[in-house]
Every structure is written in structure tokens, then in C-alpha cells.
């Protein structure tokens, strides 16, 4: 059995073999593998006795359930109005330059994916970004770069 199969079986066992478990199972895979591969989606379909189209249909609806390969660290910079007003463009530009990628792309070493996100709920402390599940409010370009450097060192 592949590691993905083992993971899916574990998640299904933990959450229960019902349709209502689909979200937590998919979330668990993304947590471990950073995206939902075709293998993972097919495996979930088998384990939960759903059609593959149903599973893919659900997965593809949600921004945080990626169906294309992502880096180990997913950086999401908030782009909604107040973060826009407080300078999210400069943050995105600085991160893009430092990582040598554009928004939507992943670095060659698969360490980082740079994305934008709709309102992250920190409008009073923008600009703000999520790195994986961790939140970083009150950003400056310098702060954002320092945070990324820490992740690059695998300290976090």
C-alpha cells in the first residue's frame, strides 16, 4: 500500500465511513501532502463509496483544497480591500522577488507556493498573510521577508 492509501484509510477510520466525513478526510490529506493528488481522490472515493466525480467536485469547490501540487509552505497574502489599502501589493511583489515566483506558482525546490486570498479577517491589522495555518498580521515588506526566511530554514 502506498503512503497515500495508508493515510486515507487512517483518516476514514478516524472520521467515519460516511459522506459527512468527506471534508475532514480531504482536509487531512491536504495537511499531510499539501494537495489532493489523483491517487488520493480516487482512494477517498473508494473508501467512502462515492463516485470519483463527486469527490473531485467537492474538492475543487474549496480554495484550501488544492488539486494541483503545492509547495511545503503555502503563503497566502490577503488581497481584499483594507489590506489592499495598507499595501498588500508591495508585500506580494517583495515575496515574489525573493522567492523568484509569481502568484500561483511554486518554487523549484517545492518549498513555497505564493497565493493571494480573499479577506482573512484581520482588516484592522493589514497587510496580513497566512503561512500554512499560521497568521502574520501588521506586515511590512521586511517583516514578510524575514518570516519567509525562517520557513526556508525549516525552523518552523
Amino acid at each position: 500500500m502506498s503512503t497515500t492509501e495508508v493515510l486515507v484509510k487512517e483518516l476514514v477510520e478516524k472520521n467515519g465511513k460516511t459522506r459527512n466525513s468527506l471534508m475532514p478526510v480531504l482536509q487531512g490529506i491536504v495537511h499531510n501532502e499539501h494537495f489532493l493528488s489523483e491517487e488520493a481522490l480516487l482512494c477517498v472515493a473508494r473508501e467512502l463509496d462515492l463516485s470519483a466525480a463527486d469527490v473531485y467536485g467537492t474538492a475543487s469547490f474549496y480554495t484550501f483544497l488544492d488539486t494541483v501540487p503545492r509547495g511545503k509552505n503555502i503563503v497566502r497574502v490577503c488581497k481584499t480591500i483594507t489590506c489592499h489599502m495598507k499595501g498588500k501589493d508591495e508585500i506580494i511583489k517583495a515575496l515574489g522577488n525573493a522567492l523568484k515566483i509569481k502568484v500561483g506558482e511554486t518554487t523549484n525546490d517545492k518549498k513555497f507556493t505564493l497565493l493571494t486570498a480573499n479577506c482573512l479577517g484581520w482588516c484592522h491589522k493589514g497587510p496580513v498573510m497566512l503561512v500554512n495555518d499560521d497568521i502574520y498580521p501588521d506586515l511590512t515588506t521586511q517583516k514578510a521577508l524575514e518570516i519567509i526566511e525562517e520557513y526556508a530554514k525549516d525552523v518552523k
Binding site: 460516511t18 459522506r19 459527512n20 466525513s21 468527506l22 471534508m23 480531504l26 482536509q27 467537492t58 469547490f61 474549496y62 480554495t63 484550501f64 483544497l65 486570498a117 480573499n118 479577506c119
Partner: peptide
């Protein structure tokens, strides 16, 4: 998992039901 529309109550139920 990152969907604004899930704040709409019936969309939220759908999401909880794995849809």
C-alpha cells in the same frame, strides 16, 4: 476550507455534509 459562500446557512450545511 476557504469559501465565503459557506457563511450562507444552507451552503454551510452542504459543506458539513461533505458537498
Amino acid at each position: 476550507s476557504g469559501a465565503y459562500v459557506c457563511g450562507e446557512e444552507s451552503a454551510l450545511f452542504e459543506s458539513m455534509e461533505g458537498k
